[in-house]
Nucleic acid binder design. Sequence first.
DNA 1: AAGCGCATGTAGCAATCGCTACATTATGGG
DNA 2: CCCATAATGTAGCGATTGCTACATGCGCTT
Lengths: 178, 178
Amino acid sequence: MSKESLLPLLTGHVLTHGLGQASLRPLAQAAGTSDRMLLYHFGTKERLIIDLLSHVAGLYSAAIDAVMAEGERPATRQALMARILEQNADPAFAPFMMLWWEIVGGAARDLPGYRAAAEAMVGELLVWLEGHMPAGDPDPAGGARYLLTVIEGTMMLAAVGHGETARQGLLAGGLLPT
Amino acid sequence: MSKESLLPLLTGHVLTHGLGQASLRPLAQAAGTSDRMLLYHFGTKERLIIDLLSHVAGLYSAAIDAVMAEGERPATRQALMARILEQNADPAFAPFMMLWWEIVGGAARDLPGYRAAAEAMVGELLVWLEGHMPAGDPDPAGGARYLLTVIEGTMMLAAVGHGETARQGLLAGGLLPT
DNA sequence: AAGCGCATGTAGCAATCGCTACATTATGGG
DNA sequence: CCCATAATGTAGCGATTGCTACATGCGCTT
C-alpha cells in the first residue's frame, strides 16, 4: 500500500471523525494498516496531516472541475447564488463542511498545511465562480469576489444556526431570486 | 476560588492556546489551581467547556455593549462596514478570531455548548448592527442581516489568506467607501 | 543460493489524558 | 469548643498519545 492509496481512506475517516480527534491508531485502522506503517510512509503525524490536507484540496478541486463540466451558465447573479447555496445545503456535503471549519481554524492559527489547503480551495472556487458569472455581467471578476464573500458568510451563519438570518440578508441584498 | 473567578483565567488560557488543545492540567495551572479543583467545581471537562463558552459569549456581549455606548451613527452602510472591518482587523482581536473559528467548527459538529454560544454571539452582533444602521436606511432589519453575512464572509476569507479577495469583492459590491 | 533492501509485525516507552479514591485542612454554626 | 461540611492536596489508575527499537518476512538481483 502506497501513500497515494492510503490517502483516500484516511480522508474518509477524517471526514466523519474530524481532524482534531484524529490519532494514528484509529486512522490506521480506517485505512487497514497500523500506526507503524503510517509513520513509515509519512514520517510524522504532522506530515501526514499536511499531505492529507493537500489531498483534500485536490479532491475539492476535482469536484469543482466535475461540476464545471456540466454547467449551463445561469442568466443572473441571483440564479448563480441559488444554485450554489442549494448544492452546499445538500446533506451529503455536510461532512466536508465540518472538515472545512476545522481547516479554517487551523489556517487562522497558521498550523502547517492548513492555510495552504484553505487558500487553494477558496482559490479554486473563485476561479469556478468567475467562469460561471452570467453572460454580459458588467464586472465578472469583481462580481465573483463579491459573491464568494457572500457565499462564505452564508455558510458560516448556517453553521452556527443563523441560516435563516443569512437568507433574509441575501434577500435584502438582492442576491436571491424573489 | 469560585467558578466565576476561575472562568476569566481559563478564558485567557483558551484564547492563547485554543480550545482543542486545552487539557485540564494546563488549564488549571493557568488558573492557579489543580485539575482536581477544576473537576471539583465543574464536575466534568465537558461542562467546564460549556460554562467557558457561555462565559465567552457573555464577554463578547459585554464588549459589544461597550462599543455600542460610544457610537456615533455612521452616515452610510459603507462607513459602517469600514468601521467594523477596521475594528476586526485590530491585532488585539486576533486571539478571539482564532477561538471563534474553533467555536464555529464545534457548532458545525454540534458539540455541546458550541452552537448555543455561537448563536448568541452572532445574535448579539446582529442586534448591534441593526441599532447602528445609518439613519434613514430604507431597510434597517434586512440591511443589518445583509451586512452581517458579508462581514462574516470577509472574516472567513481573511482567515484563510484571501483578505484581499474579500476587499475586492466588497468594492465590487459597493459595500466599501471608494 | 546468497545477500540485500524494502515492507511489515510486535512490543514497548515516556508522556499525557480525564478522572477518582483517600486523606487532610479550613471554616463556620450549634 | 465541637463537629459537620466545604475545600484542597496527594497519589494514582487505566487508557491513549506519537513514536521507536528490534526482528522478521518478502522479492529481487547477482
